[in-house]
């Protein structure tokens, strides 16, 4: 069935597509020719961008989904990554993945269904943030944190560029695979967002579906953390996403996210990481609470 005003939509999307591709090509050409941004940063940014798009699709199955700082995902993954950097330095990402997953099962399958409304939706995430803050305070106070690792590394993603090239390629590959998986399960994720009764239509048990979703979210949280870190959380407030995007709309969003991430990287070259991080955290809280209390009709995807 033809969509209403489909011609206008197609031409708009085409313009957006051409524009974003030109911007993207300019940035890449500039980077490759002048070498201002290392290749690993570009790769990590691409992995981060794709992971973010995937995370956004998953989080949209929750009607009141906040950004990933407020949802506690960044906090949970950071908490575990910091713990693991100290105590299990051999396989930090795998260990972070497993432990984050366990924490997410608690959050997304027990706490959130119990507090599923707009205003209380942020409680579990904030509890995780408080836990993280207390933990960071103690490790800094007691000098437990290993000096050779930058304290901000688990929060800023690509500021820790000591990762091997192979690891970064694995991250990028995993993020692409996850993106494809999320595209494939899009109808099932929507049904999960509609409610338990709708999920039954798939024949999947709602608990099993919640379990799979928690696993995917923990994988994405860890990927986001090691690629773009907490700074990507503010992407939630950019007006470039749509719940059911067209392919051109998706490419536009991907291009803009990539520009944002590279922009943050350049800012980090000139501003101390701690200040950038504090600013992002502050903005995340201000924007989230503005959305809840001041502008409840503000659409954020």
């Amino acid at each position: 069935m033809p969509r209403t005003s489909s011609n206008h939509q197609s031409s708009g999307e085409l313009k957006a597509l051409i524009l974003s591709t030109i911007i993207l090509l300019l940035i890449l050409t500039f980077t490759l020719v002048y070498g201002y941004i290392p290749l690993v940063v570009i790769l990590l940014s691409v992995a981060g961008t794709i992971s973010y798009i995937s995370w956004n699709r998953v989080s949209n199955s929750d009607p009141h989904s906040p950004d990933y700082i407020q949802s506690g995902e960044a906090g949970a993954a950071s908490l575990l990554l910091v713990l693991i950097l100290i105590y299990i330095p051999t396989w930090p990402v795998v260990a972070a993945l497993i432990t984050t997953f366990l924490l997410f099962i608690l959050e997304f399958m027990i706490f959130i269904p119990a507090t599923s409304n707009r205003k209380t939706r942020f409680l579990p995430g904030n509890i995780i943030m408080v836990l993280l803050a207390v933990f960071i305070f103690y490790i800094v106070k007691d000098g437990i944190y290993p000096g050779k690792i930058l304290l901000w590394a688990p929060f800023l993603g690509f500021s820790d560029l000591s990762l091997s090239f192979i690891t970064i390629v694995v991250f990028t590959g995993t993020s692409v695979l996850l993106y494809v998986f999320i595209l494939v399960v899009n109808p099932e994720m929507k049904l999960h967002g509609y409610g338990k009764k709708y999920m039954e239509l798939t024949g999947l048990h709602p608990t099993l579906a919640g379990f799979i979703l928690s696993a995917v979210r923990s994988l994405l949280a860890v990927l986001l953390l090691v690629t773009i870190g907490w700074t990507g959380a503010l992407l939630k407030y950019l007006p470039v996403f749509h719940r059911s995007p067209t392919p051109a709309g998706e490419i536009t969003a991907i291009s803009i996210i990539l520009i944002y991430i590279l922009g943050i990287y350049i800012i980090l070259l000139y501003l101390p990481a701690g200040i950038v991080l504090a600013l992002m955290l502050l903005l995340s809280y201000i924007l989230t609470y503005a959305k809840i209390y001041l502008f409840p009709r503000w659409k954020v995807y």
């Binding site: 099932e188 409610g195 024949g203 999947l204």
Partner: peptide, 25 residues
């Protein structure tokens, strides 16, 4: 069938009714 969130379009919502007839994923 009362959806938990209302951001999807009417068409995108209605086609979900056919889910039992489609293969998973």
């Amino acid at each position: 069938y009362k959806p938990g969130y209302l951001d999807d379009t009417v068409y995108d919502y209605l086609i979900m009714s056919r889910t039992p007839f489609k293969k998973l994923f």
